[in-house]
C-alpha cells in the first residue's frame, strides 16, 4: 500500500543544508501496523509527514495504492487526505469550539457524507472508543486519554486506508498510553486501516507487525 523508494529530504537552515532523510525505502502492506522508532531528530516526523501527504520530498518516489503521489499538486493531495488518510497527533489537535461529536463528524462533513450516515457512523465510532456519554462535551473538559480517543475516532470515522500517528502516546501516562495503543490496534483491524506510528515508546513496538528504526535520517 505504501511504497517509498530512495526518499531524500533536505532542509535549508541559513546557508547550510541539513539532510533530514536520505535514501529511505519502505514498503508497508495493507492493514499493517508499523512503528517507526528512533532518537529525537532522527527524522521520524519528517517521514510520517511525507507518507501523510502533508509534506513533500526532494528525491525518490512515493507510491500510495499504486499511484505516484509525489507528482500530484496540492489540491489533489488534499482530496486524497480527505478520503483516505487519517491523522492522530501527539497533542490531540481537537478543535476546542466543537463538541466531541462535531470533532469526529468533521471529516465526514468534508467528504460530503449525508446527515443520517454521518450520525450513524459517528455514534458507532464513539461507542467503540467508549465516549458515547461524552459526545456533547467540549474537548477541553476531557482528560488526555479521552482526547486522544476522540482523535482516534476522528481519524478512523471516514474509514481511511492509512492512519498517520506521530507520537500519539507521548503526552500520556503508561496506563492510558497502553489503552490508546490497544485501541488503535483493535480499531485499525476493524476498520481495515494501515497504521504508521512514530514513537519513542517501547511499549508500542510490542504490538506491531513491523518495527523500523530511524537514525540520522536513515531507515534501518
Amino acid at each position: 500500500m505504501i511504497e517509498l523508494r530512495g526518499i531524500g529530504k533536505r532542509y535549508r537552515v541559513g546557508d547550510s543544508i541539513v539532510p533530514a532523510l536520505s535514501e529511505v525505502s519502505l514498503t508497508v502492506p495493507h492493514r499493517a501496523f508499523v512503528a517507526i522508532r528512533g532518537p529525537s531528530g532522527s527524522g521520524k516526523s519528517t517521514l510520517l509527514n511525507i507518507c501523510g501527504l502533508i509534506d513533500g520530498f526532494d528525491d525518490g518516489s512515493y507510491r500510495l495504492e499504486g499511484e505516484n503521489v509525489g507528482a500530484l499538486n496540492e489540491a489533489s493531495r488534499t482530496l486524497i487526505r480527505r478520503r483516505h488518510i487519517g491523522f492522530v497527533f501527539q497533542s490531540y489537535n481537537l478543535v476546542p469550539v466543537m463538541s466531541v461529536r462535531e470533532n469526529v463528524e468533521y471529516p465526514l462533513r468534508l467528504a460530503g457524507v449525508s446527515d443520517n450516515e454521518r450520525q450513524r457512523r459517528v455514534d458507532a465510532v464513539l461507542a467503540q472508543v467508549d465516549l458515547s456519554d461524552q459526545a456533547e462535551r467540549r474537548p477541553d473538559l476531557l482528560s488526555g486519554g479521552q482526547r486522544q480517543r476522540v482523535a482516534i475516532a476522528r481519524a478512523l470515522v471516514k474509514k481511511p486506508a492509512l492512519v498517520i500517528a506521530d507520537e500519539p502516546t507521548a503526552n500520556l501516562d503508561t496506563a492510558t498510553a497502553n489503552r490508546v495503543i490497544e485501541l488503535m490496534r483493535e480499531l485499525g483491524r476493524q476498520y481495515g486501516a494501515t497504521f504508521l506510528v512514530a514513537t519513542h515508546d517501547d511499549r508500542m513496538t510490542a504490538h506491531c507487525d513491523q518495527v523500523r528504526t530511524m537514525r540520522d535520517g536513515v531507515l534501518q
Binding site: I54, A75, T78, F87, V95, Y106, P107, L110
Partner: peptide, 16 residues
C-alpha cells in the same frame, strides 16, 4: 494557525 494546519491535514481545502 495550528488548528488551520490540523484541518488542512484532515482534508480541508484552503478555500474551506
Amino acid at each position: 494557525t495550528r488548528e488551520i494546519g490540523t484541518l488542512r491535514a484532515l482534508g480541508a481545502a484552503p478555500a474551506d
